[in-house]
Design a protein around this nucleic acid. Structure first.
Lengths: 167, 167
DNA sequence: TTGAATTTTCAAAATATTCTGAAAGTTTTC
DNA sequence: GAAAACTTTCAGAATATTTTGAAAATTCAA
């Protein structure tokens, strides 16, 4: 079937792309599967569909929830837990931005502050070192602010105002 | 020595942080070492400093050059090749943005276009699938544009105009 | 309660990535 | 043009990450 083929290709490619930017392949594939699924899926269905183990599914569903990209759903009359992806891609993207900010930029800012505190003397060598540390701090801070700005904004506002203004 | 300790900590931490966002630890450490080094270094010096093999140093220097984060320098009267980091951190950051755009966003855009072409029928199921693909395309395109905008700009312009305007 | 259904955990296995070091390749000098 | 100085390559080793699957924990219905 043609459509199913395209969906499979989407899921597979999404997994491959993800590894290129440091994200677990299976996690991305589960996310892609849920994005494309009209109804929410349970662990068994995901295992079956992607041919992976129960533990793997469980672990990655957990991860996806911590990224805020999927939700757990309890269906009435069902014991099993069902999962659903956030279908608003713009919302999902903002969520990814928010998490990357927290996971990647915050640690840089904290570490640079810490290191600055550790250098007490004021020799020329120390000054030179501190310049690098301060510059990195400033760049990370700028990126953090910019991402914050963008992720806090609504899609409509962004596309209509932001892009036009700077194009 | 106090300063040396701080520098070592910087190099070590930089390597650890890098792994968290999908970048090779050694590559980051070499970059950090060159960032902190007032003079350019050759392969032997880097091997010695970071206690790693020649092959490893060579491979990662190559990688760093492809990212545009370091330069090869040929010193007169010296046979060995020396390496120097781009010391303008803002310039380096723009370089990273440019490369990530090329390496992470471009493939998404290409893949989504490809997949769209592959779906020919116009059933409701296909329409639903294409909506997801199109949305992802739009988000990736937006991110691509925004990064392009930011990386093309000069630091001074950014901090003075951009941030104030949106704060 | 009990026990069946389901989820979670985690040690070991499988896989993927990174690193080493020596051999091959290249460049430069004499 | 040969040898010394240096750089690159790459197969195998080391390390790190991911995955499995079965046992343990939890939840829920009766």
């Amino acid at each position: 079937m043609e459509l199913q083929e395209a969906k499979d290709r989407f899921i597979h490619t999404w997994g491959t792309l993800a590894t290129q930017w440091g994200i677990n392949r299976t996690m991305s594939q589960i996310h892609a599967l849920l994005l494309l699924s009209p109804k929410s899926l349970n662990a068994d269905e995901i295992m079956e569909e992607l041919q992976i183990s129960r533990g793997n599914v469980n672990m990655n569903l957990r991860d996806l929830m911590s990224w805020g990209l999927i939700y757990k759903q309890l269906l009435p009359g069902e014991r099993k837990e069902y999962f659903q992806a956030e279908k608003d891609i713009w919302k999902a993207a903002r969520q990814i931005g928010r998490e990357r900010r927290r996971r990647e930029l915050s640690p840089i800012l904290e570490t640079m502050e810490d290191i600055k505190k550790g250098v007490s003397d004021n020799s020329p060598e120390s000054a030179e070192f501190l310049k690098v540390v301060n510059d990195i701090y400033a760049v990370a801070g700028f990126a953090d602010n910019t991402l914050d700005l963008v992720t806090k904004s609504e899609e409509s506002w962004l596309t209509s105002t932001f892009v036009k203004l700077f194009k």
